[in-house]
Computed example of a mutant assay.
Amino acid sequence: MATGAKVSVVVADDHPIFLEGVLGALSRRDDLDVLAQAGDGGEALRLVRELRPAVAMLDLRLPVMTGLDVLHAIRRDDLPTRVLILSGEQASAAVYEAVQAGVDGYLTKEADRRTIGDAIVTVARGGTVLAPEAQAALTMEVRGRVQDDAPVLSPREREVLRMIADGLSGPAIAAQLQIGTATVKTHTQNVYDKLGVSERAAAVAVAMRRKLLE
């Protein structure tokens, strides 16, 4: 990025009032150029592909595609856009998953507007930004995973995990195992809790890394 050039950014958040406030703050900065806004992850990814901003600032819990899904797509497609997560999510597993996926910055929504703007510029210049809360959460998660890197799954939980990895839906798993969908949900949540994740893709990724599907 040339010295003095404005940093182009696409912003995505599904909370209109919060989004309006952030956009207003960013628009008052001479070093930022907000190209577009999105209310869901699918639209955010479309805008990133079309506009190629320097930075995409994403909420983690976006509808259609989560911020993490968008991040994975940007990395997979080798797009030049760097990613800054701005989220109310402070769970250690969420921060860990974002960092593991290659996020360039992670701020919580408690950050003030100047901090957010400065973080966008830092990320655009190749730097990395982690809010103090995110750093603490990441440290906690790493320590926990080092201490317990081999979660003990029951035989049934392993069956459910394998079927999740195969792409089966909850009802399909229930039908194949001849159990209720509520029971499948319970097993699935137990798997998520033991792996320290909150969604299917992350569960499969962690399971593959820890060789739980072999």
Rank of each mutant, 00 (worst) to 15 (best):
M1F: 08
K6A: 10
S8P: 05
V9S: 01
V9W: 12
V9T: 09
V10F: 04
D13M: 10
D14F: 05
H15F: 02
G21V: 09
S27L: 10
R29A: 03
L32K: 05
D33L: 13
A38H: 09
A38L: 10
G39D: 01
G39K: 13
G41I: 02
G42K: 06
G42H: 03
M57W: 06
V64M: 09
V64Y: 02
D78A: 13
L79E: 01
L79M: 06
A94I: 02
A101K: 03
V103A: 15
Y106L: 08
T108R: 07
K109Q: 14
K109G: 03
D112H: 00
T115L: 13
T122E: 09
G126L: 12
T128K: 15
A131G: 11
E133M: 13
M140A: 15
M140R: 15
V142L: 14
R145S: 05
Q147W: 02
L153P: 10
S154F: 07
R158Y: 01
R162P: 01
M163R: 14
I164A: 04
L168Y: 14
S169F: 09
G170P: 00
A172P: 07
V184D: 08
V184S: 06
H187Q: 14
Q189N: 14
N190L: 14
Y192H: 07
Y192P: 04
G196N: 11
V197S: 10
S198N: 15
A202Q: 13
V204D: 05
M208D: 15
R209I: 10
R210D: 00
K211G: 09
L212A: 07
